Simulated scan of single mutants.
Amino acid sequence: MTINTTGPAVAVDGRIVGDRALATRQRLADALSHLLSSQPFRDIKVIDIARQAGTSPATFYQYFSSVEDALQLVAHHVIQESSQLTSDTAGAEGIGGMTDARQVVDRLFGFWQTHQAVIRAIDAKAAEGDERFVEVRNQLLSAAGTPLDRAMERQGLSARSAMRPRVLAGALVTLLASAATHESGFAAWGTRDELRDCLASLLVNCIKAA
């Protein structure tokens, strides 16, 4: 995954640096993304990132104080990409049938799979209680859940149910995200399509029953 950074590059000491340094910072972020696709975040060291980027640890420390800081930049890119998830699922406003619900499931699963290496690292740091990555995960879930929230409001759920649409949307999207993260492990119970159809059915039934 290519990391597109925006704005001026800022060194650890606070200096705003130019385009060449911005390219170096981006190369370091790209290197971390590449490494995440093949090994756990906890095993990645500064020297690994520097070597992958074709530079030195000293250069890494000009832009990041730790590997976690570099992960924050990578995670920021994923958050930016999540805006397309919100717009892509805007058609979910008519959820009520299996076709619409399955599209919602497929779009979320597609996003999670595209960014699975980074999301896995975000989840690991969030599970450790790192508030920076707890916030990142919350932002990703919010982006994924917003279309469901809007869909339920448009269908009048807020007017006919004591359950707040945002709460139900949050519960459902958390379930979907967890299933997307562990989709490969579902092979012991059934096929990928069966899993996604089951989740789509849950979406429809939960919204109808609320």
Rank of each mutant, 00 (worst) to 15 (best):
N138M: 10
G18S: 06
M152D: 01
R160I: 09
L203I: 06
S184F: 06
L85K: 01
G14C: 03
A101D: 05
L108W: 05
S56H: 10
A121M: 02
H76L: 13
I16R: 10
Q62L: 10
A126L: 02
V118H: 00
A90M: 13
A209I: 10
L28T: 01
R164L: 11
L32F: 09
V167L: 12
P165F: 09
T6W: 00
D48R: 03
A90N: 15
A70W: 00
S161H: 06
K45H: 14
L157D: 09
L22N: 12
G54P: 07
W112Q: 13
V46E: 05
E68Q: 10
I119S: 01
R160A: 15
I49H: 00
G7F: 04
T2I: 10
A53P: 02
A11F: 07
H77G: 00
S178Y: 15
L175V: 15
K45V: 15
V173G: 03
T99Q: 14
Q139N: 08
A169L: 08
R42M: 14
A144H: 05
E131Q: 11
Q116K: 11
I47V: 10
G145C: 06
A121N: 01
R120M: 12
H77V: 07
D106F: 05
S65V: 13
P57K: 13
A92C: 11
V167T: 13
M152L: 07
V173F: 08
S65I: 09
S83Q: 15
A151I: 05
A31L: 07
Q72T: 08
E93I: 15
M163G: 08
Q62D: 08
R107M: 12
P57I: 12
G7M: 04
S158T: 11
T5I: 08
T99W: 07
A121R: 00
H76E: 12
R15L: 04
V118M: 04
E81F: 11
L199D: 01
Q84F: 09
A21Q: 07
Q139M: 12
H77F: 07
E135S: 08
A11N: 09
E183A: 14
K125R: 15
R160P: 06
A70V: 01
R102C: 04
V46M: 05
L157S: 09
L172G: 02
A187M: 09
I95S: 01
C206I: 08
Q52N: 12
D88F: 11
A143M: 04
A58Y: 14
R120V: 09
D43N: 10
A29I: 06
G129K: 04
D149W: 14
L71K: 00
S38M: 11
H115K: 03
R107N: 12
V105H: 03
A58H: 11
R42K: 12
T99R: 11
S83Y: 07
D193W: 07
G54Q: 03
E68H: 06
I207V: 07
D193P: 03
R107V: 13
G91Y: 14
E183W: 04
L35Q: 02
L203P: 01
G145F: 06
Q113F: 13
N4H: 13
A50N: 03
W189E: 10
A121K: 00
